[in-house]
């Protein structure tokens, strides 16, 4: 299968510290890939490097066969890669509606932004997004007054509105109750019907709910890769990651 997103020998260095030590990743069209790994493993950094938030020291990122390594973030976004950040990165001073409107797919030029009107088609699209993230009743609410979980949904809504080919989600369920986490899983599964999804997650139930393929990162390198069952029975993974989770759970 032809990869839509392809990461080759990616290295990211923060003032001498190698956060990524040559990571490879192939993601097929409309696949759901989940990245797990202990804190500080470099999961967020991997997504940051793909969207040029962190500079790539060596290696390459290809999107639909084109080299996008260290390109402008806005070019990468326009090409069709959307990103949800680890801590909800939304506009707190704007309303929920305005956050989604900003993200809405379309042209991003200056003159267009001045002359464009809020057409019924656009409004319907936004209403549809709000409906999917369960925030239709909060359209006019200023985002700062929402709960952490709701903010996560606003940002997921922004990514949906952006309608990119590849969606990168960084811990989309952090701070959510089990019910909210499950609801988010369903949103993501619906999204994955016509989008490629790469999600970082900690919650193993959630991973089982959505994952087709799992990548395990550890200390800036890929430790393992496979199906849910393969990963859960992999001794190395149990040692550095899953085992520790169990100990944490017991404590």
């Amino acid at each position: 299968m032809e990869s839509i997103l392809s990461v080759k020998n990616l290295q990211v260095v923060f003032s001498g510290f190698k956060a990524l030590k040559g990571v490879d990743l192939e993601v097929g069209d409309r696949e759901i890939v989940t990245i797990i790994g202990p804190n500080g493993a470099g999961k967020s950094t991997l997504l940051d490097a793909i969207v040029s938030k962190s500079p790539v020291a060596a290696g390459n990122v290809y999107f639909q066969g084109k080299d996008i390594t260290n390109k402008n973030p806005y070019d990468i976004a326009r090409m069709g890669i959307g990103r949800k950040f680890q801590n909800p990165n939304v506009y707190n001073e704007l309303t929920v509606f305005e956050n989604i409107l900003l993200a809405l797919k379309g042209t991003h030029g200056i003159l267009n932004s001045i002359t464009t009107k809020l057409t019924k088609t656009k409004k319907d699209k936004i209403i549809d997004v709000l409906d999917r993230i369960g925030l239709l009743g909060d359209a006019a609410t200023i985002v700062s007054s929402l709960s952490h979980g709701q903010k996560q949904w606003v940002e997921i809504g922004m990514v949906i509105a952006q309608d990119p080919s590849v969606v990168l989600l960084d811990e989309p369920t952090a701070g959510m109750t089990p019910e909210e986490t499950h609801a988010t899983g369903e949103i993501i599964k619906t999204l994955a019907r016509n989008h490629t999804v790469v999600a970082i997650e900690h919650d193993m139930d959630f991973v089982k709910q959505i994952a087709e393929r799992i990548i395990v990162l550890h200390q800036g390198a890929k430790l393992a890769e496979g199906s849910v069952d393969e990963i859960q029975s992999n001794p190395k993974v149990i040692e550095v990651y899953l085992g520790r989770e169990k100990i944490n759970d017991a404590a």
């Binding site: 402008n72 973030p73 806005y74 976004a77 950040f85 506009y91 993200a103 922004m158």
Partner: peptide
């Protein structure tokens, strides 16, 4: 944030 939405 807005640059990751495609705005220059």
């Amino acid at each position: 944030r807005i640059s990751y939405l495609g705005y220059d």
